[in-house]
């Protein structure tokens, strides 16, 4: 049986966190999931634990995904990072992809979460 993967969900919207957690738990009930509601909470998490998957929002009250992603890349070089944002402009997508993350436009769907958790988790 595959070893459980650890997940960090970063989003200021409670609804989005609930949706992502529920969708992951439906398919991987044994995966531990940590939630962060802000950039500062996310930085605390990535500097104190190791994650296999990180879902990251872009627009948050205390900062943006652009600002935090380079720091996450340094702290969690092995993590697969998915950007889940409502800001679906091509230039935003391109910028995140250049920073090495996979881009997913909200609203979140189960297919999107399945793809996210399938990507990069086989190492």
């Amino acid at each position: 049986m595959a070893e459980p993967k650890s997940v960090l969900v970063v989003d200021d919207s409670r609804l989005t966190r609930m949706m992502i957690v529920k969708m992951i738990k439906t398919h991987h009930s044994d995966w531990p999931i940590t939630e962060a509601t802000s950039v500062s909470e996310a930085l605390e998490c990535v500097n104190s634990q190791t994650f296999d998957f990180i879902s990251l929002d872009h627009n948050m009250p205390d900062g943006t995904g652009y600002e935090i992603l380079p720091q996450i890349n340094i702290a969690q070089p092995a993590a697969h990072i998915g950007i889940f944002t409502a800001n679906i402009q091509a230039v935003v997508k391109q910028r995140f992809e250049e920073l090495g993350a996979t881009f997913y436009g909200k609203p979140i769907s189960e297919a999107m979460i399945l793809q996210f958790t399938a990507d990069g988790g086989q190492s």
Partner: peptide, 19 residues
């Protein structure tokens, strides 16, 4: 929170057209 997130997604879609 829920309605706000739905608006947020809507505004994100609108921003594509607006941009």
């Amino acid at each position: 929170d829920t309605l706000c997130e739905l608006f947020n997604i809507g505004m994100g879609r609108a921003a594509v057209s607006f941009s």
